[in-house]
């Protein structure tokens, strides 16, 4: 075993400090060290997108980073999306209203991807939405309802 390394990260605004092996994946750090199991793990090779989190604002695969690399960085996970307990964000509500999830396994990764996408592209075309979703696999919905939900959320966010 290699020597443990200290990591200090901010996750959804809370600072955490741990000592971990360098080979610990960020996805496992979030799930097993911090108990934030909303970040899902599907493939561990970057393909499925279930583990997508935001690192300093940018959506990235948490299965393709080592936790030690996140030292000093700010992470956002699906647990941080809702504005208050018992309330959903506009994006989450649009997913519920448009039936954009069935089993929900892919949903956290998709929400983290789309939350960043809508900040950069507040008035997207359907084609842009489909491109933004290309890195997230969903085995249930057939994607149409997810596309609908993203367009719905975009409209609601624009209308305020």
């Amino acid at each position: 075993m290699s020597a443990r390394v200290a990591v200090t990260v901010s996750v959804n605004g809370t600072t955490h400090r741990r000592e971990v092996e360098p080979r610990l994946l960020l996805s496992d750090f979030l799930r097993h060290e911090l108990g934030l199991t909303g970040t899902h793990v599907g493939c561990e090779h970057g393909v499925c997108g279930a583990c997508t989190i935001r690192l300093d604002g940018a959506p990235v695969r948490s299965c393709l980073m080592f936790a030690v690399q996140a030292d000093g960085h700010a992470i956002a996970t699906v647990e941080g999306l809702a504005p208050a307990p018992g309330r959903l964000s506009v994006l989450q509500e649009a997913f519920r209203d448009a039936h954009a999830l069935q089993c929900g396994y892919c949903t956290p990764g998709i929400l983290m991807t789309v939350s960043a996408f809508l900040e950069e592209t507040p008035d997207p075309t359907e084609e842009e939405v489909r491109h933004a979703l290309s890195g997230n696999l969903c085995r249930c919905t057939g994607y149409q309802h997810i596309v609908d939900a993203v367009l719905l959320a975009a409209r609601r966010l624009r209308e305020g």
Binding site: G49, A58, P59, V60, L64, F117, N136
Partner: peptide, 9 residues
């Protein structure tokens, strides 16, 4: 080249 999340890293 890959997907937006992959290009971010």
């Amino acid at each position: 080249v890959a997907h937006p999340q992959i290009r971010n890293r």
